[in-house]
Design a protein around this nucleic acid. Structure first.
Lengths: 110, 110
DNA sequence: CCCATATTCAACCAAACGGTTGACGATTGC
DNA sequence: GCAATCGTCAACCGTTTGGTTGAATATGGG
């Protein structure tokens, strides 16, 4: 929703929320299913999801009684570009990034 | 110092601290000079600098009675790569990033 | 030596954060 | 219709955050 750097970085500063984002890379998920692997209450996860949604990192759509959570990678772009503007003073980590993608997702991913 | 994702993202989540990093892009600075443009106490800025240093985003070196602050863009790399790993699921992030660099820093920058 | 400069420390404060619990409002299915 | 499921709300709690102020600790210069 808001998607300014403050809320995006603050949202990313919590390991639970980053784990949630990683889970949503795989597929869209219901709130209950997101909460399942964590050892904390459903209400706590619900709050984390609200924070992620406010940062624009996910969207939530209610179908029936199930609320589906979907990753929105676009929200990371502004923050990512902001960060890269610092890294480039070291002559670019594009190489490191591409190597990471290759290693992480296989030669066909890029 | 610590440089894990938690502390790096938390450090970046504050606009004062991001402004400080931008200032340090230009040049190394003394604590007093960093504090100058801000409408808050020197002690507050000193705390912000400690947080940035703990995240590994800057280093501080004391020469005489002046403590010099220096940007450490390397600390952003891990966090940046983490973020890019999400963006790539849209398959255009690299292009957008390269276009940004070109636009921002000229054809020779990459 | 003394004073000014540079920076941090310590105590304090209000507000935000991350979690809990229990009650509540929708929705679904038997 | 009724019970179970899905998810949020509200109140509460302890800790962290971001700021203040005033005192303290170096260090440098005349």
């Amino acid at each position: 929703m808001k998607q300014d750097l403050d809320t995006v970085f603050a949202a990313l500063a919590d390991p639970t929320r980053r784990a949630i984002l990683s889970m949503l890379l795989e597929d869209d998920m219901a709130v209950t299913d997101v909460a399942d692997p964590f050892e904390m209450s459903l209400a706590a996860i619900s709050k984390h999801l609200t924070i992620l949604a406010n940062a624009g990192l996910i969207t939530q759509e209610k179908r029936g009684r199930v609320k589906w959570c979907k990753l929105e990678p676009d929200a990371l772009r502004e923050a990512s570009i902001w960060m890269q503007s610092f890294g480039q003073f070291e002559a670019i980590n594009l190489d490191a990034f591409e190597a990471f993608l290759e290693r992480e997702f296989g030669p066909d991913a890029g």
